[in-house]
Structure formats: C-alpha cells, structure tokens
Design a protein around this nucleic acid. Structure first.
Lengths: 113, 113
DNA sequence: GTGATACTTAGCCTTATGGAACAGTATCAA
DNA sequence: TTGATACTGTTCCATAAGGCTAAGTATCAC
C-alpha cells in the first residue's frame, strides 16, 4: 500500500470525475469488459477509454485483454491508501479539538465563576 | 454533510494537488493566515491564492478577513463526505469478496474431495 | 474469406489548471 | 503621513483534461 502514498495526486485526480467514480463503483461488484462498463454513459467509446486509461495509470484498476475483449478489475490497495490519508487528517483534526477542549477546561478551572 | 455528496467532484479535485493537501494538513492543526500558509511553498503569492480559492470554493476551508489579514480554517463536513463515499466503495468490495467466498465454499461442499 | 464486434489510434477542439509577472488597494506602525 | 505589510486583481503562458469524429486493427462467427 505504501507505494500508493506517493501517488495520491493521481488517485485523487481519478476520483474527481463522476464517470470514473461510477466505474469504480461498478467494478466493486466484480470485473467487467470495456463496452459493458461504457454502456450506461452517453459518451463515445474513445472518450470512455480515456477514463479507463486514467484509472489504470493512476492504479485504481488493472486490465487484461483476451481475444478482442478487455476485462477490467478493481485494485484493492488504492482504496486503503486514500482512506489512510484521510484518517490521518481526521486524527489531526480530532487531536486539535481535543487539545482545545482541554485548554478551555483548564481556563475554566483557572478562572472559576 | 449530505450537501457535500453532490460536490464530490470539487472535493476530490482539490485533493489532487500536493500543495492543497499540505494546506489541509496544516489547517488540521488550527487556523492560519494566507502568508503563514504560503511560506513553506516556493511559489508566488498570486499562484498560492489560486489554491486557497479552489479550497474555499470546493468547501474544504472557510476564510475571514480582519484588517489586512485573511485567516483560513478547515471545515469538518467535507472530510466526512469523502470518507463516507470511500466507505461505501469498501463495503461494495467487501460484500463482493464475501459473496465470492461463500460461492467458493458452497462449490467445495457440492464437490467434496 | 467476409461481416460484425470490440476495441484502438490519431487528430481536433474547447476549457480548465497551475504557474508566472506586475501593478494596485487597504491596513497597520511609527 | 509615510513606509511596510498583506493581500488582490489582471493578464499571460504552457500543459492537461474531457469531449468529438474518422479511420484502423484484431477476433470471432459463419
């Protein structure tokens, strides 16, 4: 998972588009072919392929071609990498609010009513 | 938090840049002024301001100007919104792997050694 | 072999992004 | 009131993003 921590730019960039988030959502249910994935979206296949490439390059999915069909599958590690970054932010935030609470409490004890 | 679910494009887009992720990290420790935030980065102030604007427009931070100093503070809701989307993906993924396990187990019981 | 299927490549267009420089405004400190 | 500080506004630039069409390649089914 560590190797994904320095690829957060691409991982987040990939999530910034609703088409790509939907593809990730679909692939969470299991692998699928390109045209199967593309069907729900009203865009041309070449345009859709760009999304697939960006998902593959960023690391979100892996693909494999057998015959004329390319099958896409979700990778597991990026989800963990991204969640890990967010958890760290959450921890920072909560650490700070805890310290704030302690500060306020301490002030209250220094200057009681 | 719900109002952030349809703003995921912007929230993720904002996270796709290391400067902006660093700003969010810094603000997790507490509010700071623009120039205080900009100091660690070797870019011009107007360029840095663009990052601040994109963080504010996407909803990650709020800012307030008093005198000549603009102070920035982290919002809490976006973190929850983003984590919630990721958790949903995780749940999908794990639901699927669970079903796969059950399938494999069932197969094993149908065709025991 | 021929036609249909499933991509794939190439090129074009428009808008967005992330950087820069330079000049301007508003406040604060002396 | 004058100089320094802290932004802010404007304009420019190069590259990337996300869409399109048209044409190409490789399989598969007959």
């Amino acid at each position: 998972m560590e190797q994904y921590q320095d690829r957060l730019d691409g991982l987040f960039q990939a999530l910034a588009d609703p088409t790509r988030r939907a593809v990730i959502g679909r692939l969470g249910e299991g692998p699928a072919s390109i045209s199967e994935l593309a069907r729900p979206f009203g865009i041309s296949l070449p345009s859709f392929m760009k999304h697939i490439h960006s998902l593959e390059e960023s690391g979100w999915i892996r693909t494999r071609k057998q015959g004329r069909v390319r099958t896409c599958a979700l990778e597991e590690a990026p989800l963990a990498a991204v969640q890990s970054w967010l958890s760290a932010q959450r921890a920072l935030w909560e650490g700070r609010t805890n310290r704030l609470e302690q500060f306020v409490t301490a002030q209250g004890q220094e200057h009681p009513e």
